[in-house]
Design a protein around this nucleic acid. Structure first.
Length: 298
DNA sequence: ACATCCCCTTAGCC
DNA sequence: AGGCTAAGGGGAT
């Protein structure tokens, strides 16, 4: 199937979107990207006039790609709104077409609990281990792919099996959270309909979910584009490039230590939301990717 | 080879 | 409230 994109009206870069660190389930093999999305393997590549893709098993959900890559976001307008200074403008120029993906909330939640204090290659490994151990297999072109397990699959798992997936101390947290979701005590889809603050409070009640993880889940799967996750990269960048927006004592205190308190997190994150506006999450992702790509040195 | 640091942090204890 | 600490293990230096 094909999706035609007019690159001036609907700018999109498949490479930047899949490489920026928001997604953990894609790999490039030759010209094609392969990924597992919900119950399908997706094979996709970008061409001069759009996207060519195939799903396994074959599905005819016409708007699947538009939805997954948020092609419905008016990116030119969003980038215009967050273009507040030279730092963000250079990131936007360098990674033009990068979009926030609309992930499946349950997988996104578990992925970012895994992401706690881990590097991206390690996170990908943990998620692959979980999927191999507990997910359904789909074979495409002689290659095996695994769907992400359902809440019931992980809720029934033993701690030992989970630890076998190299989750470390995250195993207990993932088991507890899976049980809550499996029992239906929290419905993630419902959080799409509530505001940012209320949805965040609900997520924070889960084991393994602090402010950073909550913001990632809100941004990447629950349509809260104002969420501004603050990880070590963003913290360093904000202190380095935007010190005048903070009290000097705050700057000194936060610069001098390796961890921050919930209150300090909130100060930095709300700065992001106020400074960049309602699409602060897009600004965060452009900054994050350009910092990690070492395009901008700190 | 090997040590050491860092990692898209959170929770639990004072 | 906020400081301190522990918690897998892999990848980078």
């Amino acid at each position: 199937m094909r999706v035609r994109l007019d690159s001036t009206k609907v700018p999109f870069s498949l490479d930047h979107t899949l490489e920026c660190g928001q997604l953990f389930r894609w790999q490039k093999l030759g010209d094609w990207w392969y990924g597992v999305v919900e119950d399908m393997v997706v094979k996709i590549k970008q061409t001069a006039d759009g996207l060519t893709f195939q799903t396994f098993p074959e599905r005819t959900k016409e708007d699947f790609i538009e939805n997954y890559f948020r092609l419905d976001d008016d990116l030119p307008s969003i980038l215009d709104q967050i273009s507040k200074d030279e730092l963000i403008r250079s990131a936007i120029e360098r990674f033009h077409g990068l979009r926030i993906s609309r992930q499946e909330p349950w997988e996104c939640l578990i992925s970012y609990i895994c992401a706690t204090y881990k590097s991206i290659p390690a996170i990908k490994n943990m998620i692959l281990n979980l999927s191999r151990r507990f997910g359904e297999k789909i074979t495409v072109n002689e290659r095996d792919f695994y769907m992400f397990p359902k809440p019931s699959d992980l809720a029934r798992a033993s701690l030992r099996e989970l630890r076998g997936c190299k989750l470390g101390f995250r195993a207990e947290r993932i088991l507890e959270t899976s049980k809550i979701l499996d029992r239906g005590e929290l419905n993630l889809e419902d959080l799409k309909k509530t505001g940012y603050e209320k949805a965040k409070q609900k997520l924070l009640s889960l084991q393994g979910v602090g402010q950073k993880v909550a913001d990632c889940v809100l941004l990447f799967s629950l349509d809260k584009l104002e969420a501004f996750p603050v990880d070590v990269w963003i913290r360093r960048a904000v202190l380095e490039f935007y010190p005048r927006y903070f009290e000097y004592s705050f700057f000194e205190r936060v610069s001098s230590k390796s961890t921050i308190t919930p209150h300090e997190y909130e100060t930095i994150s709300s700065f992001g939301r106020e400074y960049f506006g309602k699409y602060a999450g897009y600004a965060q992702e452009y900054l994050f990717h350009s910092l990690r790509a070492r395009e901008i040195r700190l």
